[in-house]
Design a binder for these strands. Structure first.
Lengths: 159, 159
DNA sequence: CGTGGATACTTAACATGTTAACCATCTAAG
DNA sequence: CTTAGATGGTTAACATGTTAAGTATCCACG
C-alpha cells in the first residue's frame, strides 16, 4: 500500500515538529507573545499595532498600500479599520482624485498612544537581541529575507 | 510632545517592514503559500495537514498532545477535529483509563491520503532547499530554534 | 461618447486564532 | 468519604485569515 519514500525524500520531509512552516510558526509565536503582553494592556491586537506602526509618521496611506505593508489582506483590513475608527484611532477621507480609493491616517490620540507604547516595544526588541545576540539576529533577518525573495521569485513561473 | 527615542532605541525599533515579527510572518507566508497550492487541491487547510502529519504513523494521540504538537490551541482543535471527523479523516474514542481525555487517530482513508500527498509536499521542500541551499537552510533552522528556546526560557521569570 | 476590462474596496461565508468561562472528571489532602 | 483544586475538553464571543463574489469607479480604446 504505502510505497515508502526515497531516502532523499525522507530527509526532506522532516519530522513535523521540525518542518519549516512549523519552525517559523513556533518562533513567531514565541516572539509575538512578548509583544502581545505589552499590547494587550492597551487593548490592541498585534495587527492593530501593525497598522499604527505603518501609519506612524506618515500623513496617510491608501488602504491598499497600508494592507500590503502590514501584510494584512484587504477583507481583514476592512474590519480592522472599522473597529479602529470606532475607537477613534484612525480616520479616513475619500481621495478626491480617485473616487475608488480611500486615505487613512492616525488621529492625534493614536499618535500619542504610539509614542507611549514605543518604549515598551523597544524593550522587547532589546530582550530579543540579548537572547540571540546582535550578530545572529542580523543573520536571521538576512536568511529570512533571502528565502522570502527566492520564493517570490519563483512565483512568476508557477502562477 | 513626542519625546524622541534614544539612538539605541531607534536602532532596535526597525522599520515596520523589517521588524522581526513581520520578517517571520512574510517568510512563513511565502513558504506556506507553496504548500497551500498542493493542499487546496485536496480540500485541506494547512492546519488539517498538520493534524494528518502529526497522527501519521502513530496509533493515536490524546487531543492535548496533538494540539501541542501542531501548535494549535484546543478551542481551534475542537472545530478542526469535528470537521475532519465529519469528512471521515479521523475518529476518536474515549480513554477508558481517564474519562476526561480522548484519543484521536487517522482513518484508513486518511492514511492513504497522506501517502498520496507526501510526494508533492516533498517536492515543495526540495524547491525550498534549492532556493536557499542546504547549508543556509540548516542554519536558518538552528537560529529559529535557538531563538524559540531562548524566549521560552525567559518565560518562567516573566509569567 | 460608450463600452469592456482593470482597479480599490467591501461583503459574504467559512476556517482558525485568542481569551475567558464552563463542565466533567480526576487527584490529593484532610 | 469528601471536598478543594488540578486537568482535559468544549462552548462562547470576538478578531482575523482565506477565498470568491459583488460594487463603484477609472481608464483605454474604438
Amino acid at each position: 500500500m504505502a510505497s515508502p519514500l526515497s531516502p532523499d525524500a525522507s530527509r526532506l520531509l522532516r519530522d513535523l515538529t521540525h518542518s519549516l512552516p512549523m519552525a517559523l510558526l513556533r518562533t513567531r509565536e514565541a516572539v509575538v507573545q512578548r509583544f502581545r503582553r505589552v499590547l494587550s494592556r492597551y487593548d490592541l491586537t498585534e495587527q492593530q499595532w501593525r497598522v499604527l506602526r505603518a501609519l506612524d509618521g506618515k500623513g496617510g496611506l491608501e488602504i491598499s498600500a497600508l494592507a500590503e505593508q502590514c501584510r494584512i489582506l484587504l477583507p481583514s483590513m476592512t474590519g480592522i479599520l472599522r473597529r479602529m475608527e470606532g475607537r477613534g484611532l484612525v480616520w479616513r477621507e475619500a481621495n478626491r482624485a480617485d473616487g475608488r480609493s480611500m486615505r487613512v491616517a492616525l488621529t492625534e490620540r493614536a499618535q500619542a498612544l504610539v509614542e507611549q507604547i514605543k518604549p515598551e516595544v523597544v524593550a522587547v526588541y532589546a530582550e530579543i537581541e540579548r537572547i540571540l545576540g546582535q550578530e545572529k539576529l542580523e543573520l536571521l533577518y538576512t536568511l529570512l529575507e533571502e528565502l522570502e525573495r527566492g520564493l517570490a521569485q519563483g512565483e512568476a513561473s508557477n502562477p
